[in-house]
Design a binder for these strands. Structure first.
Length: 822
RNA sequence: GCCGCGGUGGUGGAAUGGCAUACACGCAGGACUUAAAAUCCUGUGAACGAAUAGUUCGUGAGCGUUCGAGUCGCUCCCGCGGCACCA
């Protein structure tokens, strides 16, 4: 009768049982009643599952279980993101081939995930390194190439000298280091496959409006896309046929323009034969971007000897060269307005260039600008600007843009911070790029029938310093024939970045259905793609996506881009991959540092499971803090969650399981409290408020323990049901062994509770002059009238002593509060 | 500098504009025990106070709106994250 709580005794049994019965198999869906609930799939590292993974996957699992019990068709799959630098670097370190190592890591991850009771439909599992998967990744690459979204170009790119590969802008952190390995990035000229993501900049920005994503992530994507409205203004150069075009967002200040600055890489600069200019350009080129930044903001520069003419007033503006102007932004040429731009001011001061005030700000200061504090970058009214005088800067901007465009001296331009996506990696462990180079026919895609283009198993896969991937040395792989003219040709030897596989994996989960893969042709072709989408059961797009915020401008941006391109190819009928996104916060170590092997502060979930059971770990991680909050681990607090789980177990053991419902007298207050708890959990889970769900259950348990037999059987079962998403093992065991239920609790129907049953005492605070003085009890269903409340309030000593004068006004909100103003 | 998020007990945190500090951890006292662990019970924002009487103060600071503000508005301060010689 009195079984002790020993989770290890039954957790394993249920893992096997759920697997055998395919309890979590995705059922048929239809568009109106489906929930595709997805956690960002992991890179299976050798370290095994981290407690941070457990937090993310438990939260996602709670949501999936909740919707499943609420009668929705749920797709909740899991797979492995195994290509890329981390896997390869780990393999190099372990002196193993990644192709051998990855399956071992996956086996560990999978075993750990199962022990934690995540309700995945394992029939849909796959790995991005499976040729059966990446043949489609390659096929998609070819479709994008054919639609003109990819081009190959020799260009200076960010290069990690330690990882020996080129990188995308998004992979370089603000401090100039590589986001994977933390080493400093350099620049290197390499021929690259480049994705025209900038073509989609506007749509990537616009469509953010319809997404239910955290504000911070939306802001980061908006910033990263960095859309700016401005104008390109053409300036004639005195004594030359050259025209210098400058991009500016502040043409309103153009009457204050006193100089022009060109980037050292600017085309016009290359034509200048002046010795000091050549010297300056050479020096600038030898400095890396990081060195330039390290020099601080002190302005350097050299005068070209040329003057440009300001179209507005004929003023001659000296043309300078300076490395503070970036060739990669705008036109690589800037018109200097030192009165109204801090950098321009610094430059003008440094080289004794004129400063003209053209805007008066809210401080009313009209005096000449001589100090940096006077530089007026903000709102204001135009002066010294002829036909703009008296306008505010926004009106002036519009007016002068119109003026420039009418005179054909300028053109409105939208600029973006977003750069095209560098897609080549000079590494072994990635999808081979399915392109062939023929001297006669140039670049040709691999024939669809040839896919997958398999990554050869090779011994020395370590990165090289030649600027080529190790595949370049595999001669019989490289040398091939041209798909077009059948002459001799060479394969592309660079591979795709680790983001490629994760760009569309959520689509694959929906496509794969074990039952039909055998009959269904899986060869990469448009027909098969469309067939698989048709047969995919309307799961797409993803309804709930949960994962870390670190992917804000990487995976999340790239996936959105691919989906939009696929929509344009009519290969998908939706434009956004992830409708709702939620981030989980990081779990720090107990010492408030990051968990790291080198600090020796890592918590292994396996150890926690074997000591406290999976349910206690799940409950703890959901209870420790709001889901998106960064929080240090606490073993003490974990023990508190363990006590909670154990007390539930023991409470059910105490109950008299043979008692008949009719014999038992229910404690109506307890039932009312239970229903209130159920209501709270029902509304909390979809809001990702797992911590307060558990607090509510704890509160209820504290109360229930005073009268263990106070609930009849059906109600005692309801408590288990709302606990089930959080503690799947314990609830299933009690459901089965205590209540003798034949079907899984996880497929049972979520308890419904109406308002009418919740009868409870409510407390009405009494305030005098807004200060709380006493309380009056009332019934929720029969709230007392103002007169009754007033009568009771005036009887209270606590209230009476503060009513020192006449009551001027009484504020009574029925059922809420009464406030006497004296 | 710009963008986003936050600041509540010793700690993690709770609170549709209406009893601030739920729930948990920790701590203190007690029960059980030869003892410890485990478990259970009680207490636990601060100040004054013998008090589990009572009063005052109290959600980063200051104003404001309101009968009433942790919550709404304004001005700051601090912390975290992202971006940045971006014209």
């Amino acid at each position: 009768m009195n079984r002790k709580y020993q989770p290890n005794e039954f957790e394993k049994k249920w893992v096997e049982n759920w697997e055998k019965n395919k309890t979590y198999k995705s059922n048929e869906s239809n568009k109106t009643n489906k929930s595709y609930i997805l956690a960002m799939f992991p890179y299976p590292s050798g370290a095994g599952l981290h407690v941070g993974h457990v937090r993310n996957y438990t939260g996602t699992d709670v949501v999936a279980r909740y919707y499943r019990m609420n009668g929705r068709a749920v797709l909740h799959p899991m797979g492995w993101d195994a290509f890329g630098l981390p896997a390869e670097n780990a393999a190099v370190k372990a002196k193993k081939n990644p192709m051998d190592m990855v399956p071992e890591h996956i086996a560990t991850f999978k075993k750990q995930m199962k022990s934690l009771g995540f309700s995945y439909d394992w029939d849909r599992e796959f790995t991005t390194t499976d040729p059966a998967y990446y043949k489609w990744t390659q096929w998609l690459f070819i479709q994008f190439y054919k639609m003109g979204l990819l081009y190959k170009k020799n260009t200076p790119i960010n290069y990690c000298p330690v990882c020996k590969t080129g990188l995308a802008e998004e992979e370089v952190l603000a401090d100039g280091t590589h986001e994977r390995c933390g080493n400093k990035i350099t620049k290197k000229d390499l021929p690259q496959w480049i994705f025209k993501i900038t073509k989609y900049a506007d749509r990537l920005l616009e469509d953010l409006k319809g997404l239910d994503w955290p504000e911070g992530i939306l802001a980061m994507q908006r910033n990263w896309i960095g859309k700016k409205q401005g104008i390109n203004i053409d300036y004639k150069v005195k004594g030359s046929k050259e025209i210098i075009t400058c991009f500016t967002t502040r043409p309103d200040t153009n009457f204050g323009a006193t100089f022009i600055v060109l980037a050292p890489e600017h085309e016009f600069v290359k034509k200048i034969q002046k010795e000091d200019v050549k010297k300056y350009v050479k020096e600038a080129a030898s400095k890396s971007e990081i060195e330039r930044l390290a020099e601080g903001k002190k302005k350097t520069g050299v005068f070209t000897g040329f003057y440009a003419i300001n179209n507005l007033n004929g003023k001659e503006m000296p043309v300078w060269v300076s490395d503070f102007v970036l060739a990669s932004f705008g036109t690589g040429a800037v018109v200097g307005v030192p009165g109204h731009d801090i950098r321009d001011f610094e430059f003008a001061k440094e080289f004794g260039i004129d400063i003209i005030r053209v805007v008066v700000g809210s401080d009313g200061d009209k005096s000449p600008i001589t100090r940096i504090e006077q530089v007026q970058e903000k709102e204001g009214i135009m002066i010294n600007s002829e036909f703009l005088n008296g306008l505010d800067i926004h009106q002036a901007t519009k007016k002068i843009m119109d003026w420039f465009e009418e005179k054909k001296l300028g053109k409105r331009i939208t600029s973006y911070h977003l750069r095209d996506w560098i897609f080549s990696r000079q590494r072994y462990w990635g999808e081979p790029i399915p392109m062939i180079y023929c001297k006669k026919c140039q670049w040709q895609p691999v024939a669809e029938g040839e896919l997958p283009l398999k990554l050869p198993y090779i011994k020395s896969y370590e990165p090289t310093s030649t600027g080529e991937s190790p595949l370049a040395t595999v001669k019989d792989w490289v040398n091939t024939e041209c798909p077009n003219c059948h002459g001799p040709a060479k394969r592309e030897t660079d591979t795709m970045p680790n983001w490629a596989g994760s760009c569309w994996y959520f689509i694959r989960f929906a496509q794969i259905q074990k039952s039909n893969t055998k009959d269904q042709k899986d060869n990469s072709s448009i027909e098969n793609w469309k067939l698989q989408i048709e047969n995919s059961g309307n799961w797409l797009p993803v309804d709930w996506y949960l994962g870390g915020a670190e992917h804000a401008v990487l995976h999340l941006l790239y996936s959105r881009f691919w989906v939009k391109a696929l929509y344009d190819l009519k290969l998908l009928d939706f434009k956004e991959p992830f409708l709702k996104l939620r981030n989980q916060g990081m779990i720090l170590a107990e010492d408030h540092r990051k968990m790291s092997k080198s600090f020796g502060n890592v918590i292994n979930p396996d150890d926690v499971v074997s000591e406290y059971g999976a349910d206690a770990l799940r409950i703890y991680e959901m209870f420790m803090a709001p889901f998106n909050t960064e929080i240090p681990w606490s073993t003490k607090a974990l023990q508190g969650s363990y006590r909670f789980v154990k007390r539930i177990w023991e409470l059910y053991q105490k109950q008299d399981r043979n008692s008949n419902i009719k014999d038992q007298k229910e404690d109506t207050k307890l039932v009312s409290k239970l229903f209130k708890t159920i209501k709270k959990i029902t509304s909390d889970i979809p809001q990702v408020k797992f911590n307060t769900s558990i607090a509510a259950m704890m509160e209820f348990l504290n109360y229930w323990e005073k009268n263990p037999n106070g609930l009849e059987k059906e109600n005692a079962k309801k408590f288990l049901q709302v606990l089930a998403p959080f503690a799947p093992f314990l609830t299933e065991e009690l459901w089965d062994s205590f209540f003798g239920e034949k079907n899984s609790i996880h497929l049972s129907t979520w308890p419904k509770v109406g308002d009418e049953i919740i009868e409870e005492e409510i407390i009405i605070p009494v305030q005098v002059n807004g200060k709380f003085r006493d309380t009056i009890k009332s019934q929720k269903s029969k709230v007392k009238s103002q007169k009754e409340i007033e009568k009771l309030a005036f009887k209270s000593e606590k209230v009476k002593k503060f009513i020192t004068g006449k009551v001027k006004k009484t504020v009574y909100i029925p059922g809420k509060i009464i406030n006497f103003i004296i």
